[in-house]
Amino acid sequence: MLIFTCPYCGIAAEETELTPGGEAHLKRYGPGSSDDDFEEYLFLRPNAKGVHFERWRHSHGCGKWFLAARDTATLEVFGTYSAQTTEPPAEIVTAIRAKRPDWSPA
């Protein structure tokens, strides 16, 4: 059972206190977008084995959504960070690189 530290309240919360929200950093495509873009936004997920950015809500806590960088195979957590960002912040990228030198942001 996973543990993530909520970046908003600092609590290391266990999975039962959290709600998962799927892949992070999706770009929303609304009216006027192409079918392909919309399909990609709504349905297509790489489902990576390895480094993955994902959304979690501290639902049995401060109620805030936050983002996490995690290895989907080993369950190692590289860091958690604010949901108010469109891409992984530099320190998260650095933390991942320290553990996974071969990885590079898409």
Partner: peptide
């Protein structure tokens, strides 16, 4: 309520 908070926190912050 969770749906509202999701959009407010993660898209239209």
């Amino acid at each position: 309520h969770a749906h509202m908070e999701d959009w407010l926190q993660c898209e239209w912050w």
